[in-house]
Design a protein around this nucleic acid. Structure first.
Length: 225
DNA sequence: GCCCAGGTGGGTA
DNA sequence: TACCCACATGGG
């Protein structure tokens, strides 16, 4: 398929999702530190469990690096217990914030904003516990950088709607979206959020459930029930 | 009780 | 590279 066709299809799917669900207002968090915290806590975990953990943190301290790092790891783990893998995530949160605070003489916000994408992304990926989805979430939702976030839903979504092959991996899918969409953080933000919304509601069933707003373009093959 | 959730890292063949 | 497993709570 020629490139322009992929662009048209991707854009049409986006328009359909947006018309159906409306703006998703992602990321659900007020500050960059809150967004980063959520990005780590939501690894393989439902958002509801993460929201409780973040509420617990907010109840005891400001969501900034120093106060968060002042919490002993065991205490931190208890506060985020509801998000699952809590001992592991407590260590990862601390490790990440320690690393973040060491950047750019402490001006890590400027570092996140200004460091060339490939360099910043590679640096994030080198931190223990930060994989591609978390790195891209931090850059896109926490620093307004132009990178597309891929997740389980997005891989399934792209394969199901015939954008790319079933076994397409993270980096390839990310490149696909970025190569075929206008380069816009706002668009990347909303598109990923809409895919998650679709995946979390309509797109799990086979055959497609009647609520799927993409029935007409989906090629899962099964007729909508 | 079973399955899954906005992943990641380590180990083995 | 390709699987497998641990990590863990909470909702449907």
């Amino acid at each position: 398929m020629p490139k322009v066709h992929h662009t048209k299809k991707l854009t049409a799917v986006y328009d359909r999702l947006y018309a159906h669900y409306g703006p998703q207002h992602w990321w659900p968090g007020d500050t960059d530190v809150e967004i980063i915290t959520g990005a780590i806590l939501t690894q393989n975990t439902s958002w509801g469990n993460v929201a409780k953990a973040i509420a617990n943190l907010k109840a005891v301290t400001a969501l900034e690096l120093e106060p968060l790092l002042a919490i002993p790891e065991e205490r931190l783990a208890e506060l985020i217990r509801s998000s699952g893998y809590y001992r592991q995530k407590a260590a990862r949160l601390r490790g990440f914030f320690l690393w973040l605070g060491s950047l750019n003489s402490g001006d890590w916000r400027a570092w996140l904003k200004k460091t060339p994408m490939n360099e910043a992304r590679a640096a994030l990926l080198a931190v223990h516990g930060i994989g591609p989805e978390t790195a891209d979430s931090i850059l896109l939702y926490g620093a307004d950088r132009k990178t597309f976030v891929i997740d389980k839903y997005t891989l399934r979504f792209g394969a199901r709607y015939g954008l790319y092959a079933e076994k397409t991996k993270y980096e390839e899918a990310r490149t696909y979206f970025m190569d075929h969409l206008p380069s816009s953080a706002k668009l990347y933000n909303e598109y990923h959020a809409l895919i998650v919304r679709l995946g979390a509601t309509a797109c799990k069933s086979k055959p497609l459930c009647a609520a799927c707003p993409l029935n007409q373009t989906c090629r899962a093959g099964k007729k909508a029930v």
